[in-house]
Design a protein around this nucleic acid. Structure first.
Lengths: 231, 231
DNA sequence: TGATCGCATCGTACATCGTACGAGTCAATC
DNA sequence: GATTGACTCGTACGATGTACGATGCGATCA
């Protein structure tokens, strides 16, 4: 059993009422794709992208490193699965039917951004062709909502990508500047040292105390105004 | 001599008219930060992010692997320097004085995007706090131009980040979907297989033949309309 | 002239990584 | 009882980033 590419969820091992004896020498509940992915997310949260090693992951799961490869194919797949698993979206069904399409779109995109900010490593995993079911689901929802809101078919793709791009960029940027206080101090000092070369951004304290959330909301509104004007 | 962080460019070795004899046993022109960075970019262009190894880089430069560490500190620094070096912008001085501020902004941002698309690896390096001089320069230019165009100080940071975010996201997304035909066929097939779950994005062929450039331009225009309305 | 010193280069060595390979263990089936 | 297939894991290999120390060089100073 191998999950290739980014798409996979394998069938869970069936194991009935009877317990395996060896793998869980005393307590470990046996490997499964779900456990692996969940544990990978934990590890990424705790140690960041570089902290995720197949060996460490296996240790945490109480198994041998090579056992993982029955379930996942390779490390790339672990990354892809972890990323997609973090981007699940609950509000699929209900909100769509609202006539408040704009509220629905904003809600989904803000939730998206929030999810990624909860897991800062996710931003650095984005630059890869990972189109798991959750990501596709969000795209589908976005697409359907905009379409229902009256965006013409010929403008639909442009609208979707503009919004998606905006969210991606905002998340990545935000993640970059949300480092430790120490890093922030570093940046300030470096900028001050080069102050005369970059007077405008130094004066506006661009790197230091921008209102990220406000800026995100504002830009999003402008985009929506343009893409699908409030009638 | 060590370039720490992302900011550095060290002074070039001074070497007068006389040649060193050992390092360039016959032909190699001696190590320098510039040569290292330029060669790193070449290597990244040719082999992608994973293709860049200190050993390979050193080989190309005709030197030993450890020699690089006199100039760069660590591999991270090489990445940061390569990224920034690719983002140089020529149009600094002249365009700024134009009254056509909007043209200047659009030009700079499109040039930015173009530069990153010329070097597809740059997108995957973005999610890191790399603020080299060229990136800062672009931010400064953007900032100054918008300010001069009449954007109020209190709105300035939000405007800058919205634009920056948009460009980042667009570039990263575009890079992801510009893979080989083979990958594209893969995606198509995968989507078709799951067709019934994602009918809307399948119908619009979202992943296949979107007009990236057009979408980019359109979204950018909307953003600019909102952020700094044409009077 | 020789001694000293800072810049720069590089060989060796080590820890760590992803993972190929194949042997092992079990439950279910024949 | 033999076979099969799902699953686990120990060992091993090649590659990587880089710490460390040895080495050579030109310039400076005695």
């Amino acid at each position: 059993m191998v999950v290739k590419g980014s798409s996979g969820q394998g069938k869970a091992p069936r194991r009935g009422a009877s317990q395996r004896t060896v793998p869980e020498a005393r307590n470990e509940p046996a490997l499964s794709l779900e456990r692996i992915v969940a544990c990978a997310v934990e590890l990424l949260d705790a140690q960041g992208v570089d902290g995720l090693t197949m060996r460490r992951l296996a240790d945490r799961l109480g198994s041998g490193a090579m056992s993982l490869y029955w379930h996942v194919g390779n490390k790339e797949a672990v990354f892809d699965l972890a990323l997609d698993s973090v981007l699940e979206y609950a509000g699929q069904a209900q909100a769509t039917e609202d006539q408040d399409w704009r509220g629905a779109v904003v809600h989904m995109l803000e939730d998206w951004r929030a999810a990624m900010l909860r897991h800062p490593w996710s931003a650095s995993l984005l630059p890869r062709r990972a189109l798991g079911p959750n990501i596709l689901g969000r795209l589908e929802l976005l697409s359907r909502t905009l379409s229902r809101a009256g965006v013409a078919d010929k403008d639909l793709n442009a609208a979707i990508w503009s919004l998606w791009n905006y969210v991606m960029g905002a998340t990545i940027t935000r993640g970059n500047f949300e480092r430790s206080d120490e890093d922030r101090a570093d940046a300030q000092q470096r900028l001050a040292a080069l102050g005369e070369r970059y007077p405008t951004i130094e004066r506006s304290r661009l790197l230091l105390d921008s209102d990220w959330d406000g800026a995100f909301r504002k830009g999003l509104d402008f985009l929506l105004d343009g893409l699908a004007p409030r009638r």
